[in-house]
Nucleic acid binder design. Sequence first.
DNA 1: CTCCGACTTGAAGTGCGCTTCAAGTCAAGG
DNA 2: CCTTGACTTGAAGCGCACTTCAAGTCGGAG
Lengths: 129, 129
Amino acid sequence: MMSIGEVAQQAQIRPSAIRYYERLGLLPSPARASGRRRYGEDILLQLEVIRFARQSGFTLREIRQLFAGRPYSSGLRELAAQKVNDLDGLIARAQGMQLMLRRALRCKCLSLQECARQLRRTNASRMPK
Amino acid sequence: MMSIGEVAQQAQIRPSAIRYYERLGLLPSPARASGRRRYGEDILLQLEVIRFARQSGFTLREIRQLFAGRPYSSGLRELAAQKVNDLDGLIARAQGMQLMLRRALRCKCLSLQECARQLRRTNASRMPK
DNA sequence: CTCCGACTTGAAGTGCGCTTCAAGTCAAGG
DNA sequence: CCTTGACTTGAAGCGCACTTCAAGTCGGAG
């Protein structure tokens, strides 16, 4: 069993963030030894998933809905499917942005107006309203 | 020439956001007619690029650095190249997340622990520390 | 002319994701 | 024993991206 400090060090995260996740309901309250939190190995995996999801643009509330609920809960699969869809949009936008930046790097016209015009011409379909 | 309200309506954004962007230096101060801002068509393109960049995970400060500076400024190309790189990471994480969610949808084990274990087994290389 | 609605400004407020602070508890080492 | 340092809590603070509010200005319709 690890202390919150050990977990934090291994997960490269601040203890305060772990406590914050717990308060928000992303993590279950762990066992306690004379008041102090004691964690098993599982916590590291859970924190990894939280970070991974955060870095994919999920909010903590979404992460709680998706991962901290019981399996098979009613709207959960629907939500997950929606999220898969959202990620398609995110990926498309990120790729469009890359295209724009690469183009700007090549053509030496790195200014808002020029790049916008280029983007519009070549990538209009991927620019959401 | 358009008023801030017209621009806002066409760009699907609040006037307050336009003023905020202006204050932050993302947008130049437009012409004024008896105190009121008057915009040409260019503003719509500029706002589109800002939204597009925001949706790709850029902060407003980054957007200002990248797009609101003069062309060819010193560290600008370097920054852009860095951003292209960051986007690779973002795209990879988003795709990893999609994989995880799709898997969870198929195998009916949508719980933090199960998905984490799956992710770890199948996608460890894409999980950043 | 008067009223309405859209605009102006600066300042304060909001929600998110944390961090920091203050005050206190506890266990282990010297 | 007593100090040290990691922990506990609740509350406050912070940076971001805006929005909202308060108080005032302005142009055009009636």
